[in-house]
Every structure is written in structure tokens, then in C-alpha cells.
Design a protein around this nucleic acid. Structure first.
Lengths: 121, 121
DNA sequence: CTGTATCCAGCTCGATACTG
DNA sequence: CAGTATCGAGCTGGATACAG
């Protein structure tokens, strides 16, 4: 049997990569690493996300076993989302990436400035 | 001054995150971590990528200072792409993610199977 | 070999309105 | 509070043809 390989477009590892390679997944999972959160709290924490994308991404993550949805069955509704063990292991790697983005965003800005300036001398 | 924060949609760190949160970037940068590669070699290595997306993503990565483009100025053309120091530091984090995808793709498959089965009992 | 240019089908995603 | 449903503008990205 072939080993899983992200470079193979027919491999299920590629599917996994495509699930991860999403702006919202890369924010939702790390957000949940601090503990369970409710829909409204995530909506507040993650700037720019719409209710639609939050619901959609959470459902996708739940479907893939990364996020656990816990409905308290109360009125008014109280639903909590948390990381599964698998989700927690992924979240660690994503946090590294988020931190990288925060640490080097200035360098990227500068590089863009230089590149764009060089195009019209 | 506010610290860079990926959760803030107006922060340039979010821009950085969106650059990274791309299926192709997550494959191209790790591919280059083994050493410089040519356009055709990347096209062969990365299954499913089109010439258009390869060119487009490489240009975007170059613009942000992550990839260095070296044109040998020969006929026929010989162009090599390599990682900048910044790109190399990002590539490490991306490789971790790629390895995660390869290691756990089976678990994701299984979770999806269970989830989808539970929806039609 | 390493691109560029163009077309356009299909998907994404925000906005809005509504429900239990 | 936590969603669902629907619409449609705009972006994405593959296919194809062409170029230095």
C-alpha cells in the first residue's frame, strides 16, 4: 500500500490538507484551544467571520472529527464547541502558523512594498 | 501600538494568514525546502496543480518575500525557484502540517464515515 | 522551457430574512 | 441563542491557445 502523500491529488491526505487550508479553520481551531466556546463567542472572537461561514466551517470540522458539538438542550439554546483529541493535535500546529503570521506580517508587508515599487521604476 | 493579531480582520497579520491558507502555498513551499526547483519539476511534483496556479502562487509568494526567483537568462529558459530565509522558516511550520495531514488522513476518513452514517439511521 | 492571455463554468461567501 | 434558507455578485481556477 502506498503511504499517504499530500503531493498526490488522489490521496486522502490531500483531502485532509484541503480541509486545513482554510482561513476560517486556521482561526476556529486555535480559538477553541483555550477551552470550549459558544457560537456567539466565536463570532465575537473571530473578526470578519459571518454566521454562515462559522456554522459551515464548524460543521465541516465536526464531520471530520476535529470539533465536538455539545448541545445543552435548553431554552434558550446553549451549544458549546470544543476540540477533540485529534483537533487539539492539529490546533497546536495551526497555532504555530498563526504565531508565524503575527511575527512576520511586517516583513511580508515590507517585501510587498519593495516588490511593487520595483515593478514601476 | 496594537500587537499583530490574526483574529483582527483589519490587521496585516490576517493578510499574512490568508496568503498561507492556500492549498497550493502549503505544497509549494515545502516542496522547495529540499532545494531549488524549476517550474517543470514543481509541476511534476505537485499533483493536480495547473500551470496557471503554479505561476500565480509562485508570483504571490515571491511578492511577499517568501520565494526567490532566479532566471538564468538562457535559451531555452532556465528558471529556478528557492526559499528565502523567511520562506524557509514558514516552510518548516507547513511541513509539520503536511505531515499531520498524512498521518491522520485515515482518522479523518473514518470520522467522516461515522458522521455521514449517523445522519441517515 | 517558461511562461502569458483569455474565456467562462462553477463555486464561495456575504447579506438578508426567517425559525424554534 | 443558535441556527437555517435563499439570493446573487464576484472571485477562483481549469482549459485552451499563443509567445519569447
Amino acid at each position: 500500500m502506498a503511504a499517504p502523500n499530500v503531493y498526490d491529488s488522489a490521496c486522502s491526505a490531500r483531502l485532509a490538507l484541503e480541509l486545513i487550508a482554510s482561513k476560517w479553520a486556521m482561526l476556529i481551531l486555535p480559538a477553541l484551544s483555550a477551552g470550549p466556546m459558544r457560537n456567539s463567542a466565536l463570532l465575537r472572537k473571530i473578526g470578519g467571520i459571518s454566521q454562515k461561514m462559522l456554522t459551515q466551517t464548524l460543521k465541516d470540522l465536526e464531520r471530520n472529527g476535529l470539533v465536538i458539538r455539545r448541545d445543552m438542550q435548553t431554552v434558550p439554546p446553549h451549544v458549546e464547541y470544543s476540540l477533540s483529541k485529534l483537533g487539539a493535535s492539529l490546533s497546536e500546529a495551526l497555532i504555530t502558523l498563526d504565531l508565524w503570521a503575527e511575527r512576520y506580517s511586517d516583513d511580508l508587508d515590507a517585501a510587498r512594498g519593495r516588490f511593487d515599487a520595483g515593478l514601476r521604476p
